[in-house]
């Protein structure tokens, strides 16, 4: 085994260890701030895995999008909602945890089995390395042109929707009749599904 191979193996093992331990921490830790920071670590380690696969562009995109945007957004959301509220204990939580752990382990075993009995065509395609950015650009403007353009519509629509849901100015008058309105369903609830906190 040459030095480069063994370095690659060691890097892979360290990164894989970080990913597995970090994601277990994200799921299992009780404090959501720890989870959020660990999630950032997991994203960074995944970017490291991409680098190992010689996909530097994808690694950079991963860091920019997931660590730089998604994770920071999650942290902002947590910091903005700094309201400590004691939730009602869920009945049978322990049993539920065991059940979901059992299902997840079953899935894991199934995946392992399938991965082991599948005849993989190895080695896979050789990595292009630095040429990858050019290749991705060409794909985006030829055979992936339609999803690329559609993604812009998706983002536009998501932005408009977020603004509509978040903005404060409320319409108070029905344009057609001049009656008062309150932006709720026309069908009045027989029994409320959620307890309305504004009235109690």
């Amino acid at each position: 085994m040459s030095i480069s191979n063994s370095t690659e193996l060691i890097c892979f093992l360290v990164l894989a260890f970080v990913v597995i331990l970090g994601s277990l921490g994200v799921v299992l830790l009780g404090n959501i701030v720890y989870s959020a920071f660990l999630l950032g670590g997991v994203f960074m380690a995944v970017a490291g895995l991409y680098l190992l696969l010689n996909a530097s562009f994808v690694a950079a995109a991963q860091v920019l999008v997931y660590v730089g945007a998604v994770n920071v957004l999650i942290l902002f959301a947590i910091m903005l909602v700094n309201k400590r509220e004691d939730l009602k204990p869920i009945p049978g939580l322990q049993l539920r945890r065991f059940l979901s752990a059992g299902i997840c382990l079953g899935l894991l075993v199934l995946m392992f089995r399938v991965v082991l009995i599948t005849p993989w065509s190895l080695p896979g395609p050789a990595a292009i390395g630095e040429g990858a950015t050019v290749r991705i650009g060409e794909h985006l403007f030829t055979d992936y042109l339609l999803p690329f353009e559609l993604a812009s519509v998706l983002l536009l629509m998501a932005m408009i929707g977020a603004i509509v849901l978040a903005r404060r100015d409320i319409q108070t008058v029905d344009v057609g009749t001049g009656n008062e309105v309150n932006q709720s369903l026309i069908e009045k609830a027989g029994t409320p599904l959620l307890v309305d906190k504004t009235t109690t």
Binding site: A158, L165, I170, N182, Q183, L193
Partner: peptide, 21 residues
């Protein structure tokens, strides 16, 4: 695109807790 638009539309009555739920 279809799904995200559907989520937004189902929560469109933002003053109603049923719609948010």
């Amino acid at each position: 695109t279809l799904s995200v638009a559907s989520y937004l539309l189902s929560g469109y009555m933002k003053r109603d807790s049923r719609s948010s739920e």
